[in-house]
Computed example of a mutant assay.
Amino acid sequence: MSTTKFIPALGYDFLSDYYDLAIKITMPEKKFRNRLVDFVNPKEDEKILEFGFGTAQNIIILKQRFPDSDVQGVDIDPKIKSIAEYKLNKAGIHAPLFLYDGNKLPFEDKSFDKVYSSLVFHQLDSVTKLKCLLEINRILKPEGELIIGDWGKAKTKWMRFSFYLVQLLDGFKTTNDNVNGLMIKYISDARFKNVEEIDHINTSIGTYSYYLANKINY
């Protein structure tokens, strides 16, 4: 499988083992993850995908709150998948996890009712952002929901200053679009409707924003 080059968690592969610790130290983890799950709000018989499952912390919270929910995950990083599988097994949670090559998602058209993602898109360059959003659009059912939690436009000068730490780790090229408030444009360009920033949380390293959109019914 030919894999597209990607930026690992925290910017460097050797730091991936410390990702959970870094999140706990720099962000209000319980608050921002639970609010994301609030927006996902799984319903009966819905099929849900996490795009970029990371260490599976969002899946664990979602399955603990909604045990009967049907959630799967996809990611590009084999090392992070191993960490996620270990954590899911330890928590006694079953959720299928898949790797993909960074190009086409390994799912059929119109497969999912909802796709959500957290702290992924700030690691993607402009071309890859749009490509991934178009792939998510493809696998969503008509009127399906997209929920993204990621770094957004800084709400205060201090938020903008503190976000430089994220940019130093993950790169200015990929993160500039986020902090300049362009996520709504990318989502709209990927043929989604009703695109809006519905909430945000100011953290010690920047403004974490929540975006909601629907696939156009066609």
Results as ranks from 00 to 15, higher is better:
Glu44Gln: 07
Glu143Tyr: 08
Gly144Glu: 09
Gln123Ala: 13
Ile184Gln: 08
Lys5Cys: 04
Asp150Leu: 03
Gln167Tyr: 03
Glu44Lys: 07
His200Leu: 01
Arg65Thr: 03
Ser188Gln: 12
Asp113Trp: 01
Arg160Asp: 14
Ala190Lys: 10
Asp13Phe: 08
Leu105Val: 07
Phe163Cys: 10
Ala22Asn: 10
Leu36Gly: 02
Glu29Pro: 05
Leu97Ser: 07
Ile148Asp: 04
Thr174Val: 14
Phe98Thr: 14
Gly144Asp: 07
Ile93Gln: 10
Glu50Ala: 02
Ala213His: 00
Pro142Leu: 10
Asp45Glu: 15
Leu124Tyr: 03
Tyr86Gln: 13
Asn89Ala: 09
Trp158Gln: 11
Pro67Lys: 06
Tyr208Met: 07
Gly54Phe: 09
Ala213Trp: 03
Thr128Ala: 13
Phe98Ala: 14
Phe14Tyr: 15
Phe107Asn: 01
Ala22Leu: 08
Asn214Leu: 09
Val115Tyr: 06
Gly149Gln: 04
Arg160Thr: 09
Thr174Asp: 00
Asp125Ala: 05
Leu140Ala: 08
Tyr18Val: 02
Ile76Gly: 10
Lys24Leu: 12
Lys81Ser: 13
Ile201Thr: 03
Asp13His: 07
Asp38Met: 05
Lys5Trp: 01
Asn176Tyr: 05
Asn202Met: 12
Asn194Asp: 11
Gly102His: 03
Ala213Gly: 00
Glu50Tyr: 04
Gly206Val: 01
Tyr211Arg: 09
Asp17His: 14
Leu62Thr: 03
Gly144Trp: 11
Ala56Phe: 05
Val37Gly: 07
Lys81Gly: 10
Pro42Met: 04
Asn34Leu: 15
Lys110Ile: 09
Asp109Lys: 14
Asn89Glu: 14
Val120Ser: 04
Lys185Val: 14
Glu29Ile: 04
Asn58Gly: 06
Lys43Leu: 14
Val115Gln: 05
Asn178Asp: 08
Ser162His: 03
Trp151Glu: 10
Asp101Leu: 03
Asn137His: 13
Leu62Val: 00
Gly73Asp: 12
Asn214His: 13
Lys31Ser: 02
Asp75Met: 05
Leu97Lys: 02
Tyr18Asn: 13
Phe192Thr: 04
Lys173Thr: 15
Thr4Leu: 12
Gln123Cys: 11
Tyr211Ala: 02
Asp17Phe: 14
Ser118Thr: 15
Ala9Leu: 11
Glu108Arg: 13
Thr156Met: 02
Asp109Gln: 11
Ser162Glu: 00
Lys5Ile: 05
Lys47Trp: 04
Gly171Asp: 02
Leu124Lys: 08
Ile76Gln: 09
Ile25Ala: 07
Arg160Tyr: 14
Lys24Ala: 15
Asn194Cys: 02
Leu10Gly: 04
Met159Glu: 11
Lys43Gly: 09
Thr4Trp: 00
Tyr210Thr: 00
Ser16Tyr: 01
Glu197Lys: 10
Trp151Ser: 03
Pro142Thr: 01
